[in-house]
């Protein structure tokens, strides 16, 4: 399944919705998500967006570079992204 998912991702040459990828590999989106999360734990994929968004939120109020309440529009509800870790 991993290689099938990788093939589909490469073929898409861009962003895919989880539902679209699930349809392409004939999988349930929830099952596919579990698998993607397993590959994140294995270091083959990364999300990282949570960290980045936390850092963004941590920037605090607009115009301040200190931790504080999330003041930044759009920070709160961004989609979760899974990207393939490129081989060095």
């Amino acid at each position: 399944m991993y290689s099938q998912v990788m093939r589909e991702l490469q073929a898409a040459q861009g962003t895919l919705r989880l539902e679209d990828l699930a349809a392409r590999v004939n999988a349930e989106p929830s099952a596919l998500k579990g698998m993607l999360e397993f590959w994140v734990r294995k270091g083959r994929m990364r999300t990282g967006d949570g960290d980045a968004m936390d850092a963004a939120a941590c920037a605090g109020a607009c115009g301040q570079a200190c931790p504080g309440v999330t003041q930044c529009v759009f920070v709160a509800k961004m989609p979760t992204m899974f990207s393939v870790v490129s081989k060095k």
Binding site: D49, A55, A59
Partner: peptide, 20 residues
């Protein structure tokens, strides 16, 4: 990060961490 930048540029710089 650009979407974040509509609110404020400061957190948008931090949001670039999404890029590997």
């Amino acid at each position: 990060p650009m979407l974040v930048g509509f609110g404020c540029t400061v957190p948008a710089f931090y949001a670039t961490r999404t890029l590997e």
